[in-house]
Amino acid sequence: GAHMMLLWSVVRWALRPPYRLGVILDAMVFIGVESMPIVLLISLFVGAVFALQLSSALRTFQAEAFTGATVGLALTRELAPVFTSIVVAARAGAGMATELGSMRITEQIDALATMAVNPVQYLVVPRVIGGVLMVPLLAMVFNCIGMVGAYIVAVGMQNVDRGIFLENARWLLDPNDLTQGLIKAVVFGLALTLIACQQGYNASGGAKGVGIATTRAVVGSFVTILVLDYFLTDLWLTFFSKNIQN
């Protein structure tokens, strides 16, 4: 209930001036640009290890040619949005919860209110917008670098034919697969930033309270991402299968 009330406040204040573009850009840099190195590193090795496992398993059935397509489907549908969101929650989400919690403990948020600056509009709205915009972009980067890692391992180390690897990936991957992953990334970005801001914004109890808020933000984001992933997948498959039947 507290998270939904904060979401409603974010929607209301996001539509009202003043629109602080500088603050929004700062949040986008913090959430997106500064998370890029760890996303690049993780995506490379996630694609590589999946290609290594799949090529060995599929070779048993003489189907190693489908390694690229299988890795591509896994990345676009599940791995890219989920892993990207978890990385952002662990790095940026924890930072946002700690920052807002410290501001609450030191009464800086109360000072903003006394200066007629709405704290939700100034502190929460830019971070939520930054998460919604940057997590899908990071997921796209994850897709690309993950496929590069899979290509290096499958073609360079497991002797999968390069042309078949690329052609099967192009043939089996569909725009709907990419759309599914991007929709998930948008929802996950909204959820993790909202949870981090809610925990930090309502922190109490001094330094210990800030630590508790940060822990709750990270753990809550992880659990929420995985739970939402299941329900979004179920809804997508139900909707998509109905469209195919029609």
Rank of each mutant, 00 (worst) to 15 (best):
H3T: 13
M4Y: 07
M4N: 09
L6V: 08
L7N: 10
L7V: 13
W8V: 14
V10C: 10
V11P: 02
W13P: 05
W13M: 13
A14G: 15
L15W: 12
Y19M: 07
R20I: 13
L21F: 11
G22Q: 01
V23H: 09
I24D: 08
I24C: 11
L25W: 15
M28S: 13
M28I: 12
V29S: 15
V29H: 13
I31N: 01
E34R: 15
E34N: 14
S43H: 13
L44Q: 11
F45Y: 14
V46F: 10
V49N: 10
Q53E: 14
L54A: 14
L54W: 00
S55Y: 06
S55H: 09
S56E: 14
A57D: 14
F61W: 12
F61E: 11
F61C: 10
Q62R: 13
A63G: 13
A65Y: 06
A69P: 11
A69M: 12
G72R: 00
L73S: 09
L75S: 07
L75T: 00
E78Q: 09
L79H: 00
A80W: 07
V82Y: 02
G95C: 08
M96W: 05
A97H: 05
L100N: 01
G101V: 02
G101P: 04
S102I: 11
S102C: 12
M103H: 00
R104A: 07
D110C: 01
A111Y: 01
A113T: 10
A113P: 04
M115N: 08
M115F: 02
N118A: 03
N118S: 09
N118F: 07
P119R: 08
P119C: 02
V120G: 07
Y122V: 08
Y122T: 08
Y122R: 03
P126V: 02
G130M: 04
G130D: 05
G131S: 09
G131P: 10
M134C: 10
L137S: 04
A139C: 11
M140Q: 11
M140Y: 10
V141H: 08
F142Y: 05
N143F: 08
C144V: 15
I145Y: 04
G146E: 09
G149Y: 05
A150I: 10
Y151F: 14
I152M: 10
A154K: 04
V160W: 00
G163R: 00
I164R: 02
I164Y: 04
L166W: 03
N168C: 03
N168Q: 11
D174V: 02
D174T: 07
D177M: 04
D177L: 05
Q180T: 10
Q180V: 04
K184V: 02
A185D: 07
A185T: 01
V187N: 09
F188R: 02
F188H: 01
G189A: 05
G189K: 01
L192Y: 03
T193K: 01
T193P: 01
L194P: 00
G200T: 05
G200Q: 08
Y201V: 06
A207Y: 03
V210Q: 06
G211L: 04
T214H: 02
R216V: 09
V218I: 15
V223T: 15
V223A: 13
T224M: 00
L226F: 15
Y230H: 10
L232V: 10
W236C: 02
F239I: 13
N246K: 12
